[in-house]
Amino acid sequence: MRYALGVEYDGGDFLGWQRLAKPGVHDSSTVQSVLENALSFVANSPIETVCAGRTDSGVHGQCQVVHFDSDAVRSPRAWSLGATSQLPASVCVRWCQPVADDFHARFSARARRYRYRILNRGVRPALGRQYLSWERLPLDAAAMHRAGQHLLGEHDFSAFRTVHCQAPHARRNLHHLNVSRHGEEVIVEVQANAFLHHMVRNIVGSLLLVGRGEQPESWLAELLAGRDRTLAGPTAPADGLVFVSPLYPAEWKLPAEVTL
């Protein structure tokens, strides 16, 4: 039987999503490792998982979608509650449901969503600091939003990929980019068919230069056309980034929060 899970995690305790040790080796350094250990405990046999999109060290997950196969006879409730009981406090399985054998957490997804939160005030945060980036200089969120619209559509995003990115090409389709201010917070929300390694954080790093008035709004279009990572802004810190969720066609009958 194949199952899909919705997994929530605080990435601050981990070296990213991807397992570093071999399957079956007890390891608590990555989200995938602790999740597979917990699921294997419930199944009483080794479990390997596939996720919708790997996250880096320090990046959080609101609803990461995972699939796995198991012959163990367990109810969805037993999988979700049983696994959560074996997970550290920074990880939980929000839901579990059986899916068709051809469902794939990564390849069946049609889009991914991220949110980046910036506390924009003169003093660094004390409360909630693990989920916020901080910028002390005033930001023009409206200018950041207008600049971000230059990136919409299908383009080569080489200017916003890390040199360590292993993707075979840099073409991605950015569906949506919104920058808004909510009191002292500036929030960047993005959706694309897929993302390159560090793509969101590199876009935010460039938008911050526009928000501080150091670059014009048209600069994002120039960076995109130039395809040169060395000319773009710095990579924004991981703390403020949350992988909100992947999105799937309705045919898979997954919860509404991950359905197009």
Rank of each mutant, 00 (worst) to 15 (best):
I47C: 05
N173V: 09
T55I: 05
Q166H: 07
V258H: 10
P246G: 14
G12H: 05
L87P: 00
F195Q: 11
P138G: 06
H182S: 15
S133P: 08
L139G: 03
G58K: 01
I47V: 15
A141N: 06
F160G: 07
L20M: 13
L174Y: 06
A38L: 06
L137E: 12
S133F: 08
F157Y: 13
D156L: 05
S133D: 09
P125E: 03
L137W: 14
R212T: 15
R229N: 06
H26P: 08
T235R: 07
R227G: 00
R129Q: 07
L254A: 12
Q215Y: 09
E222M: 12
A105M: 02
W252C: 07
S218N: 08
V244C: 12
R2L: 03
H104T: 13
V244P: 09
T162K: 08
H60K: 08
V31W: 02
F103C: 13
A142M: 00
E185A: 15
N37K: 09
C51S: 14
R2S: 05
S45V: 02
A221Q: 12
R74E: 09
G153W: 02
V244G: 11
S85M: 11
V190M: 12
L254H: 14
R129W: 01
D101Q: 15
F14K: 04
W17G: 05
V66W: 04
N37D: 14
R136M: 13
L208F: 02
V7F: 05
R229P: 02
G82T: 03
G16W: 02
G153L: 05
T162F: 01
A232S: 15
A105E: 04
F160P: 07
L254W: 09
L177I: 13
V31D: 00
R181W: 03
A236L: 10
S57G: 02
V244E: 14
G53N: 04
I203D: 02
T259P: 10
H26V: 15
V242F: 10
L5E: 04
E184W: 07
L87A: 09
R146W: 06
K22L: 15
L174I: 13
G82I: 10
Y131P: 06
D156P: 02
F41N: 13
P237Q: 10
N44M: 12
R229G: 08
Y248L: 09
R136C: 14
M144E: 02
L15I: 03
P255E: 14
R2H: 10
I203M: 12
F157T: 15
L87Q: 08
Y3N: 01
